[in-house]
Design a protein around this nucleic acid. Structure first.
Length: 420
RNA sequence: GUGAGUGUAGCUCAGUUGGAUAGAGCACUGGGUUGUGGCCCCAGUGGUCGAGGGUUCGAGUCCCUUCACUCACCCCA
């Protein structure tokens, strides 16, 4: 094997595609039930959209983007996330002129140049949902409830919803300074990385796994105590609505987000079965994004679900693999043409009929039928054909019957219907 | 970008202190009386031992380089 898929880019093979389709269908059902519409956006955008939207100083923009210059000299980037593009589309097509409130979802691949590991790939799929144009905390709860409902519908248990408030443009800088002061005093017990973070992004220290840093974190000031009264009120209302909806959550004052545009409500759903990359989904409010990309002052909130992480959590016992309704065993040269005629008719009627193409022995054909888990085998031999009949074998109970070829398609359609 | 681990048949892995034609299970193909599956039995196909260099009479085994994969850090979905 010479040419292989490139690092971090994976094939999703037929034996697992059922799970993916299941997730997509369920997401569409649930989201559309909540009044969301699908939007499809390009995979390539002008680099500027992301550098301004996500934030120049974020890891994504600094070192994780697939950026290149096209033949006419424009700097383009494979989308590392969907929110910025969705916001761009909303502005570009002035969707707000139809209705200031837009509820959108989008399913597709994202690209980030990172070192792959468990649950992390260079091309990975996300299910995104966003609400543009509403500042009211009611919609924060609405989005979170929809997300949890989706996760329940796909059969996930043992998940934990964590929420936090990150404050806004006014109060977050104050908190940041406070945090800097605090950790500066404790710099001696911080690891090398965290001392660097002190300057670049002190909030990130909360994520550190080094023992001594964790100790330093314990009595660090919490965002929640520093957010302004407006942000606090917003957060309190979000919690209130979640309680009204009957959702339980865990406050995680240490949760921070890696993208600059996040403000106020931030949330994550984590699983303890995922390994190091334990966030199945993450999201939050981003009331500054639209202005960053040069648009109007429009608030937004949304989330992204990591599909491969979700797929890996899906129960294994679910049978997603499609099996043939029928296997046609062909015996003898003379029957090939008639067999083809029958198989063709079955296919046109939506019957999954398989057959042998290489004139193999009946034994070999039966073995394959069994391997493919075909419920029935139709044996077409010269003897039966002369009498206008064929043998139909039920592989489950080994019962065989002779059926007239003229009624064959109808009989098999009937049997196939019972199988579904 | 950093660190650790692993690369032997399609898959999962054996391969002893370097020693002769590189093994097993599963999978695949055929067969076990004429046209009947799963279990069982027999046989067969399949490997430049990741790649390149070096040490040696001799390397899958030791050394160096390189590539790939995996996990972790970083960060995130």
């Amino acid at each position: 094997m010479e040419i292989k898929a490139i690092r971090g880019f994976n094939d999703i093979l037929p034996d697992e595609i059922g799970k993916w389709q299941f997730l997509e269908i369920t997401a569409r059902e649930v989201f559309e039930g909540f009044g969301f519409s699908e939007i499809r956006i390009p995979i390539l955008e002008r680099t500027e959209l992301f550098s301004r939207g996500i934030g120049e100083a974020t890891d994504i923009v600094e070192k994780e983007m697939y950026t290149f210059t096209d033949r006419s000299g424009n700097s383009l980037t494979l989308r590392p996330e969907a929110t910025a593009s969705m916001a761009r589309a909303y502005l570009e097509h002035q969707l707000y002129t139809f209705d200031p409130v837009a509820k959108l979802y989008c399913i597709g691949p994202m690209f980030r140049y990172e070192r792959p590991q468990k649950g992390r790939f260079r091309q990975f799929y996300q299910i995104d949902a966003e609400v543009f144009g509403v500042e009211n905390p009611m919609v924060d709860a609405e989005v979170i409830v929809m997300l949890i409902d989706f996760l329940k519908r796909v059969g996930l248990e043992k998940l934990e919803l964590q929420i936090n408030s990150l404050g806004c443009r006014d109060c977050r800088p104050r908190y940041r300074e406070e945090l800097k002061k605090f950790f500066a005093q404790k710099a001696f017990q911080l690891c090398e990385d965290c001392r660097r973070r002190l300057d670049t992004n002190p909030l990130r220290i909360f994520d550190c796994k080094v023992e001594t840093c964790r100790e330093a974190i314990v009595d660090a000031p919490k965002v929640i105590h520093f957010i302004c009264s407006k942000c606090k009120m917003h957060f309190d209302q979000v919690k209130g609505y979640l309680e009204t909806a009957g959702l339980s959550y865990v406050l995680n004052p240490k949760m921070v987000r890696g993208l600059d545009y996040y403000t106020r409500t931030a949330f994550e759903v984590v699983s303890y079965q995922l390994g190091s990359q334990n966030a199945v989904t993450g999201g939050g409010r981003y009331d500054n994004l639209f202005q960053e990309i040069g648009g109007l002052d429009i608030p937004g909130i949304g989330f992204a679900i990591g599909m491969e992480r979700l797929v890996s959590l899906l129960p294994k016992d679910k049978e997603f693999i499609q099996t043939p309704h029928l296997f046609v065993a062909i015996l003898g040269e003379k029957t090939i043409k008639e067999a083809y005629r029958i198989i063709n008719q079955l296919h046109l009627q939506g019957i999954r009929a398989e057959c042998d193409y290489e004139g193999k022995s009946l034994k070999s054909q039966m073995r394959r039928a069994d391997k493919l888990k075909a419920q029935y085998v139709l044996i077409l031999g010269e003897n039966e054909l002369k009498r206008g009949k064929a043998v139909l074998r039920n592989m489950g109970n080994k019962v065989q019957e002779e059926i007239p070829i003229l009624d064959l398609v109808n009989i098999i359609k009937e049997k196939a219907r019972h199988q579904e």
